[in-house]
Simulated scan of single mutants.
Amino acid sequence: METSYQGGVTYEDSGDNFQRLSQTIASNIKKISQNVSSMSKMVNQLQTPQDSQELRTQLRQIQNYTQKLAKDTSSMIMELMKLPVENSASRLTRDRLSDEYMATLNSFQTTQRLAAQKSKEDVKKVKAQSINIGDPFGMSGHNKELLEMGDTTQNQEQINMQTERNLLELEERERDIRQLENDIMDVNQIFKQLGTMIHAQGEVVDSIESNVEYTAQNVEAGNQQLREAANYKNKLRKKKVYIGLILFIIILIIIIVLVKN
């Protein structure tokens, strides 16, 4: 069973930030996915003959490791989203990683919810079977059998010990459920933060694209105005030539007339 966990990394070389963050995020997403797969198998074994305290302990450990890894990866994703993107390939890598992380995080939360649901069902079942568990004078059917077997004092001690163990087990399971519910809330918060950042990033991209389109339109409009100005200038030049030719012809006619006279 893999329960690997890697903490946050600080990168000093800003030129390599995007590359290193991308590689670390991709590696973490793979680890989270593997851990979720292991968790899912364990959760499916709950409430079956394979269920045991050891299994629940392992499940709790891998859940805690994965929760920490998810938080660190979330911070890295947010840092990656803030870095300037120089080309379309980097933008595609960033968007792909954020999509993969959100999908993996969703699978993790689904598994968490199923584990919490089964744990709650177990606690309700134990409480239903031991209605008098908190009453030192109460006796369930099993406790009555022990008392009827003979040594009342010894059997009562056994009953008290069993009651105490049951209480401790219930308290531990209820603590695990509360912790799991808190972890689920933390994952919800990660979803909200990433969703807000991705939405804002999308607006920035749209704004940049709009500005580029607006600039392109302005350039095209400027070129059109230059073409119109050039055409106007050419027409004006032609008019001047025509007027000059007409004046030349008129002067030439006048000279011819004067010479003949």
Rank of each mutant, 00 (worst) to 15 (best):
G15D: 12
L247V: 12
N188R: 13
G8D: 15
G244N: 13
I243E: 09
S88Q: 13
S22T: 07
S207D: 03
D51V: 03
M81S: 06
R237Y: 09
A128R: 11
R94G: 13
N87H: 09
Q117E: 13
V187S: 03
K238P: 02
T110G: 13
R173Y: 02
E213N: 12
G7Y: 01
K238Q: 11
I177R: 01
S98F: 07
R96G: 11
E100L: 15
I62G: 08
I131S: 13
G150N: 10
S107H: 11
K118Q: 08
K30C: 08
G222P: 03
R96K: 14
Q112M: 08
Y214I: 10
E181W: 08
Y232T: 06
D16F: 07
S75Q: 11
N35I: 00
N166P: 00
V204D: 04
L146D: 12
I29V: 07
E228G: 04
R227P: 05
E203C: 00
T48P: 02
Q225W: 07
L247S: 14
N223M: 13
S37I: 00
K30F: 12
L69S: 02
K192A: 11
Q189P: 00
I243K: 09
I254Y: 07
I255E: 06
D135L: 02
K71N: 13
D122G: 05
E220H: 04
Y65T: 06
M102C: 10
E203D: 09
N143K: 14
M185F: 13
L146S: 10
T152W: 03
K192D: 13
Q162A: 14
N132E: 08
G15M: 11
E100Q: 15
I133R: 07
L226G: 05
G8I: 08
L80S: 04
G202W: 01
M1Y: 06
Q53M: 06
S119N: 12
E145T: 15
T163H: 08
N160W: 04
Q189I: 08
T93P: 14
V205N: 04
I254N: 11
N182H: 14
T163M: 11
G244V: 00
I62M: 10
E220C: 01
Q45P: 05
L247T: 08
T163P: 00
N17G: 10
D151C: 10
Y101R: 13
I131M: 06
I243Q: 01
G202P: 03
Q117R: 12
